[in-house]
Design a protein around this nucleic acid. Sequence first.
DNA 1: CGTTCTAGTTTGAGCGCTCATTCTAAGTTA
DNA 2: TAACTTAGAATGAGCGCTCAAACTAGAACG
Lengths: 203, 203
Amino acid sequence: MTDEAISSSDCSRAEARRNQILEAAEACFREYGFHGASISRISKSCGMSAGHIYHYFENKEAIIAAIVANDLDRLLAMSAEMRNADNVLDALIDRVAEGVVEQLESRGAGLKLEIAAEAARNPTVAEIVRGADRRCTASLAETFRLARLAAGKSATPEEIARMVEVIAAMFDGLLLRRVRQADIDTRELIVGFQSVIRCLITS
Amino acid sequence: MTDEAISSSDCSRAEARRNQILEAAEACFREYGFHGASISRISKSCGMSAGHIYHYFENKEAIIAAIVANDLDRLLAMSAEMRNADNVLDALIDRVAEGVVEQLESRGAGLKLEIAAEAARNPTVAEIVRGADRRCTASLAETFRLARLAAGKSATPEEIARMVEVIAAMFDGLLLRRVRQADIDTRELIVGFQSVIRCLITS
DNA sequence: CGTTCTAGTTTGAGCGCTCATTCTAAGTTA
DNA sequence: TAACTTAGAATGAGCGCTCAAACTAGAACG
């Protein structure tokens, strides 16, 4: 219930400090998990005292929530730009490669997994995650609808929803594959993903 | 370095106690996460004193390792039986439904996610997880090889490996979909999964 | 039969430590 | 001076884990 508006005089400085904390916290959470990363560890990592962090965040959960929200905003931004393309199907197939690489890239992937695990038991985090997913899948659905129409196929809401769910599962699954299989052949995986998507849209 | 052989007289009693601890720990880990679940909480949950747990497990990590190994053994058992069927392709498509339901079922799913997140930063857990995955995907690969041959298609190791990775990603992804989307239409998802698998095998 | 001995089982207090969080007080800036 | 910023010690709670003592039940003995 502490107000978020920290300062009247110098807002940018406070904003910078907040980001500094978030960046350090993100690194710690990735390395130790949400519960394994302590405030003192975070404070050391961002070069300020433990108590000082509480000037910018009400508690540890607020830091977690901020990071989750940040991370999902990035995801949303990426998914949003996909719709604005000339040839939707080609653009879609092209973006698959980027998408696969992005999901397998270690920096973000570990954190996303951590967030999901936390969401499975923390209602606050679950709500944030679900909100982002709703917007993300809606965007994906519209892209698929356009792709189906461009391919001269039917595009009932049921068909689209089904496709979205399958594709979403595939991409989300990459986060786990990264952990479960040490040496993934990214290029082969991209080929596989592309053929599945092509098959879904043109059949 | 404490020896695992606890008793000479009554081994089954010790085994029962171990399982009692594991069951309680599993529930706690699911609810609070590996780091959020304390020994004292686990001890309360299985109705014995905190200290007593250390007669059966060297430390908390050993409990985690045991649960991870248990859980993955169950997974392996399920995947192993899939190969022994008359019509491989039909059997495969049929099992998809079971597989999807199994992955979405809440009891096991939360724990698997927790395990994956832990594996992302705990090398001991990662090694267990990867070992299980290797055996699991090998089994899946053989099933796919037979299915492709039955369908009169080529089955080069590369093709098979690619299919396995895509399918594995899809199923692993369900663990995340469960969290990210509150109300999944399981039946629609099964239809979608089946059509993708059919498409992969017969093209 | 009852008693003592013995060895495994179980307890719970408590160790040293770290946790999230609060608070005081000093430093900085304007 | 007055307001803001920062540090870091202090707090009480809870952590993983240890250990000495209490309990239990069956074997050995008289």
